[in-house]
Each structure stands twice: as structure tokens, then as C-alpha cells.
Amino acid sequence: MNTEESVHTLSDGLELYAKTWKTSGSPLAVLAFIHGFSDHCNAYHDLFPTLASAGVEVRSFDQRGWGRSVKQPSDRGNTGPTSQVLSDIHSFLQSLPSDTNVPVFLMGHSMGGGQVLNYIFHPESPYNGDKSNRPNFTGVLLHSPLIAIDPSSRPSKLTVSAGRVVAKMVPHKQRYSPLDANLMSRNEAVVKEVVADTLCHDTGTFEGLAGMLDRGIWLEGMFAAGPGAWVKSELPFWFGHGDGDRITSYAATEDFVKALTEKGGDVKFCSYEGAYHKLHAELPETTEKFLADVKAWILSKVPGPKRVFVQDEVEGVEVHGDAETEGKPKL
């Protein structure tokens, strides 16, 4: 597996750090990945190499205000409003390969998961604007998505209200908003790594933080808002969440999956018992299952005969053959 670093230039001239995890031959599929709050695309451990080794090329980038896209301290967390966030994502996605023979998937983690859901379902998203110029996805994956903050980590109503006032007065004012590293993973080595990673700066602007909360509030009320409030999607969706996650709400994901399924959505939900927020960097047995689940779901959606290399991580047995196809949508 080879990697390639690059720069994605936005319409306003801002340069974003981008990276591709390449397959050994022609890719079976391409996965575009959107990272979470105070995170960056090089912090996803074995997820991207595992997919690349199975024939899935991964393309990701550090969002405006995060990771290596930050050029100076004042850039930290300066994401702009939701319209800017979704526009940046749209710009990156439009740069993906246009070969119609290579299916493209979209995946988001945590804050990135909430952004992806807004991108697909919100009527004002650029994805739902000029549909003749939209990316052509085969499926969408959400990994511990921020539909709601878990009650144990949720800021008080007073803090949120005060933050909204400040956001209107001085939107780019920064606020240090650290996530509890001990809630990221049950793997102690991962907790230490998160603490030591200087690219995870835990700093947002009041405008960006308010936008993140508002995107979650919209998702929580999306289905209750009635017809026309959201755009129905025919795409298949995969959700993965640990029931021990105290950063983003497992219950909110469960409710969203149930409602989307009831609305006729093609949905699969994988629950991970006891798992915390970073399923890609959890206890080995959890992460192995998560990686296998993601890989299997993507490959099951790739049409036609598959040049698939499937590895049994537990037994160490290598099997060459076609990936299994998915059954009916289920919870």
C-alpha cells in the first residue's frame, strides 16, 4: 500500500492538506472520508490501510480549521458556518475520480458523521442543489456520528445560550473545548496518543461550535419536521456505534436509524458492545470486528465480479473469492 499527500485548493484560495491511501492495483472502489472534531485524516490507525489492502482506495483531507490545514494559531477551529463546512466538503468530493466503473462511497466519523448526514439530507446542502453536478455515491457510512452529544458530555443550556450570543457578536473568537481523552477508547495506548497529538488542538470558534450543535439539533428533529423538511435518499446507509460511547449519543444514532428505516431507507446498523468513541482504535477484538464490518459492507455494494482479498484477522487464514452480498436492511 502506498500513500500520496496532496493539496486541495478551495474556491477562496485556502489550501487543505489531503492524502490518498492507494491500492496495489486498480481500485475496486473509492472511499471519501470526513474526520471528526479536533481530529485529522492521519489519525485513523488501521482503517485506511485495511481498506486499501482490500482494494478500496481511501481519499481524505484535513478540514478547514483542523490538522495540517491549520497554518497559524488563529486558524484553529475556524471552520466558518455550516454553509462553508458543507461547501468545503462538496468541493473535495467533486475532485474525486469520475470513472463511472469505480463506485464511490462516503464515510464520516463523529462530527464528520453529522456533517455527512447534513450534506446528504439537508435541502440547502450543495449536494441537493445542482443535482446534475453532484457526486455519484454507491453508499454512505457513519461511524459514531454526531447526531447528538451524549448527555454525560453535553454542555449546559446556559453555556450553549451564552455561546450563541458570543457567536453572533464575535464569530471567530476561539474557545478551548477539550474532549475527555479517557472517553475516546478503552485502549490506554490510544488515550495517551490522543493527549500527545498536537494536531488535536481542541479549539473551536464560537461560530463553528454553534454550527456543530445546530447540525445535530437539525438531525434530531429531521423526521418530525415532516415532508419537504429533508431530502429523501435512495442510497444505502451503514451505521456503526459503540453502546459505551459517551462522546456522541448511541441512543440518538439508534433512534435515527430506526426512523430512517421506517421511512423506507436502506439501512444497516452495527452495534459494538461496550465500545467507546473511536471504534477504529478500540480494544483489538472490537476494532477487528469494526474493520471487518466496514470492509464487508463496502465490498458487498461493489457490482459485478470482485477481485477481493479477504483476510480472517482472528484465524490468520487468507481466502480469495467474492464478497458476500448484503441481505435486507436491518437494525
Rank of each mutant, 00 (worst) to 15 (best):
E4W: 07
E4L: 15
E5C: 11
S6W: 05
V7W: 05
L10S: 09
Y17D: 13
Y17R: 15
T23Q: 11
P27K: 07
P27S: 09
L31R: 07
I34D: 09
I34M: 11
F37C: 06
N42F: 01
A43V: 04
A52R: 01
A54Y: 00
A54N: 04
V56M: 10
G67K: 10
Q72C: 03
G77R: 06
Q84C: 02
L86R: 11
S91D: 10
V102W: 04
H109D: 05
V116W: 03
F121N: 07
N133M: 03
G139C: 13
L142K: 01
I147H: 02
S161D: 09
H172A: 09
R175G: 08
Y176D: 06
D180A: 09
L183K: 15
S185L: 01
V191Q: 07
K192G: 03
T198H: 00
L199W: 13
C200N: 05
D202T: 02
M212C: 08
L213P: 06
G216T: 11
G221R: 10
F223S: 06
G228N: 12
A229Q: 14
W238L: 15
S249C: 13
F256N: 07
A259D: 15
A275D: 11
Y276P: 01
K278F: 06
E282H: 08
F290S: 08
A296V: 02
I298D: 09
L299K: 06
V310S: 07
V310Y: 00
V319Q: 06
A323I: 01
E326H: 03
P329V: 07
L331S: 10
